[in-house]
Structure formats: structure tokens, C-alpha cells
Simulated assay, not measured.
Amino acid sequence: MPRRRVRVPEPEPLDLERALAGRLRVESKRDGAWNVQPQSAAAAVKEYVCPGCGGEIAPGTAHVVAWRADGLFGEADDLAGRRHWHAHCWRTRT
């Protein structure tokens, strides 16, 4: 009796941008601790105004979302104060 070959599908290639996107981290700045979460270009579907430069963050533009990690009024208040920043503006923020 002949053997049947089972066809195994090839694994989907790793999308590095997708794998790294959304990786929440905590950063220390001069004014305290901040939660920082990258937004990939694919996940950026709305327009925002960057508080760093006042410029537009257009849909489809990778950027970061930041909010306080050490606020005095609790996590819900910190989340309500989150802002979308150009990655460069966030990095150069003092």
C-alpha cells in the first residue's frame, strides 16, 4: 500500500513591525514615570495633534501614545490624559 504525503502549509513569515508594535514600556522623564506604547502605521487610523510640536499626526503614521505611570489621581485619570506623540517629539522631550 503506497504512503500518502501530507502537505504541511508553510508558516506565515514573521512581520517584525507587527510583532514589535504595541509593546508597552515605562520611561522615566524629568517630570516622572510615563507609560509609552508604540502605535504602528497600520494601527494608526485617526488623525491626532502632537503635543510636542503641535503638528498633525496623519492616519497611517507610526507614533507613540504616552500617559502618566505615577499620577496622583489613579490609573483611570492617567489613561484619560494619554496623548499621541510623534516618536521623534517624544524622544527629544525633556
Rank of each mutant, 00 (worst) to 15 (best):
M1Y: 11
M1D: 13
P2L: 13
P2I: 07
P2C: 09
R3H: 12
R4S: 09
R5Y: 08
V6Q: 04
V6I: 09
V6Y: 03
R7S: 01
E10L: 08
P11Q: 02
P11T: 02
P11E: 06
P11V: 02
E12Y: 00
P13H: 07
P13M: 10
D15P: 12
D15M: 05
D15S: 11
L16W: 07
R18K: 14
A19K: 15
L20R: 15
L24K: 15
R25P: 04
V26H: 14
V26C: 11
V26L: 12
E27R: 13
E27P: 00
E27H: 09
R30A: 15
R30C: 04
D31C: 06
G32C: 08
G32E: 03
A33M: 13
A33K: 15
A33N: 12
N35P: 01
N35H: 14
V36P: 06
V36Y: 12
P38Y: 00
Q39G: 00
Q39C: 03
S40A: 13
S40M: 05
A42R: 14
A42V: 13
A42Q: 09
A43F: 12
A44N: 06
A44H: 09
K46Y: 06
K46Q: 11
E47N: 00
V49G: 06
C50L: 00
C50G: 02
P51W: 01
P51Y: 04
P51G: 04
P51K: 04
P51H: 04
P51C: 04
G52R: 10
G52H: 05
G52N: 04
C53E: 02
C53W: 01
G54F: 05
E56G: 01
E56A: 09
E56Y: 00
I57F: 02
A58R: 13
P59E: 08
G60V: 02
G60Q: 01
T61N: 00
T61S: 12
A62T: 05
A62H: 01
H63P: 03
H63I: 03
V64F: 11
V64Q: 10
V65M: 08
V65L: 14
V65R: 14
A66Y: 07
A66L: 11
A66D: 08
W67R: 15
R68C: 00
R68M: 03
A69E: 12
D70Q: 12
D70I: 13
L72N: 10
L72S: 13
F73P: 01
F73I: 07
G74L: 04
E75Q: 15
A76H: 07
A76P: 03
A76K: 07
D78N: 15
L79T: 07
L79A: 11
A80G: 13
A80L: 14
A80T: 08
A80V: 05
G81A: 13
G81H: 10
R82V: 03
R83V: 06
R83M: 08
H84R: 05
W85E: 03
H86N: 08
H86A: 11
H88N: 11
H88T: 15
C89P: 01
C89W: 08
C89I: 04
C89Q: 00
W90V: 03
W90K: 06
R91V: 09
R91S: 14
T92G: 00
T92K: 06
R93C: 00
R93K: 05
T94R: 09
T94E: 08
